[in-house]
């Protein structure tokens, strides 16, 4: 019991320590793979680092890759604070993306100040409603949200498949919609990179999530339900209301990843455009310890790995898939945080 107390007192540093050590361990194990390929790990990592952080342009690219991951990471983290495991960020971002695209294409002649927010809000509403379904099923019938969020993913994939090849199929041959109106575009911030004003939205989202969770009554209730639903109930907090609310907000956050991709990067809805951004969000939330600020850094790290991968592939013998291995290793070490912690403790003793 007293040992537990000791850990408590150093809680903050421990929360930081495990993710950082996990990343370092993952890079270390990754180095073994690089050696097997016959390259110098230091050289490969140098290339990786320079490509993702070496210049303003590469930093911009890294941030652009990080933007959707911030949204999906926040989404997963937010639901988790209410004790919910939202595996449905991928589906929520697809319906959000589609709703934003439809608004972006259909309305013409609106001023930007109206059209852009309209498209964004349409996406958030769609994503939020999509997530409300598993939320309601959990709250009212006790059906586990993991099952339903996964199921809703498939419905979202095929629904958007249908919409993009059917009613909203654009003029070109490819399975994509027409371009959205310029009035619904998230402006590029640093041409030629595709970094756009979505990153500003992401930062705002981080701040808002932080405020909601720790500075409002709503956050108090949501976290109370996440920690101890029976005590929350005793405190007069409606468990079912907060489950639904947390899912809706989580879905809205996830949808913003899709919205950013459509309005800021692709300029149109493309069938199955997402490289598993929603699922990556789970890893980002895990690495970021479900804290908005942690999510930001985790998303930037994952964005950087992706950005650097191509250069590493081009300039060394190390294939870009190494980055995927490193990501997987990070997740493993964070998930096995007891193991990682023991490794840290042993280090300290020695």
């Amino acid at each position: 019991m007293l040992r537990l107390k000791l850990q408590q007192s150093s809680l903050i540093s421990r929360d930081l320590l495990v993710p950082i050590v996990s990343v370092l361990l993952a890079l270390l194990v990754g180095a073994i793979f690089i050696l097997i390929v016959g390259e110098n790990p230091l050289h490969a990592y140098k290339v990786l680092f320079l490509e993702s952080f070496g210049s303003i342009r590469s930093i911009a690219t890294t941030l652009q890759r990080a933007t959707p991951l911030i949204f999906t990471g926040l989404a997963v983290a937010f639901a988790f604070r209410c004790g919910l495991f939202n595996i449905g960020a991928e589906g929520q971002l697809y319906v959000g993306a589609m709703a934003a695209a439809i608004v972006g294409i259909t309305f013409t002649g609106l001023p930007k100040i109206i059209h852009l927010p309209m498209a964004i809000i349409a996406g958030m509403v769609a994503g939020g409603l999509w997530a409300a379904v598993p939320g309601l099923l959990k709250a009212k019938l006790g059906v586990h949200e993991v099952i339903n969020t996964i199921m809703m993913n498939f419905i979202a994939f095929y629904l958007t498949d249908f919409l993009v090849t059917g009613p909203f199929h654009g003029g070109r041959w490819a399975p994509e919609t027409d371009r959205i109106m310029p009035t619904a575009v998230l402006e590029r911030l640093f041409v030629p990179t595709r970094l756009n004003t979505g990153i500003i939205l992401a930062v705002v989202a981080i701040i808002l999530v932080y405020i909601i969770l720790w500075k409002t009554r709503t956050g108090y209730e949501i976290r109370a339900v996440g920690f101890n639903p029976t005590a929350a109930e005793y405190g007069g907090i409606s468990v079912s209301k907060n489950i639904v609310l947390a899912m809706v907000l989580s879905g809205a956050l996830a949808s913003l990843a899709g919205v950013e991709q459509i309005l800021g990067v692709h300029g149109r809805f493309i069938q199955r455009f997402s490289p598993d951004l929603g699922f990556m969000g789970i890893a980002v939330a895990l690495l970021g310890k479900n804290h908005p600020v942690g999510v930001f850094f985790a998303a930037v790290l994952f964005g950087a790995l992706r950005t650097g991968a191509a250069a590493m592939d081009r300039l060394t013998d190390v294939p870009r898939e190494l980055v995927v291995i490193i990501q997987a290793l990070i997740i493993m070490f964070v998930a096995a945080d007891e193991l990682t912690r023991r490794l840290i403790a042993r280090r300290r003793k020695a």
Binding site: T216, R217, R223, A224, F227, N228, A231, G235
Partner: peptide, 28 residues
């Protein structure tokens, strides 16, 4: 109790939605 909450936050459990612990219905 919510064991993961601080003493201060547990002291308002059940009263957390009332004045003076919230302002403008929302903010702590």
């Amino acid at each position: 109790l919510i064991l993961e909450y601080s003493v201060a936050d547990n002291m308002i459990l059940g009263l957390h939605s009332q004045a003076p612990f919230v302002e403008k219905f929302l903010f702590r």
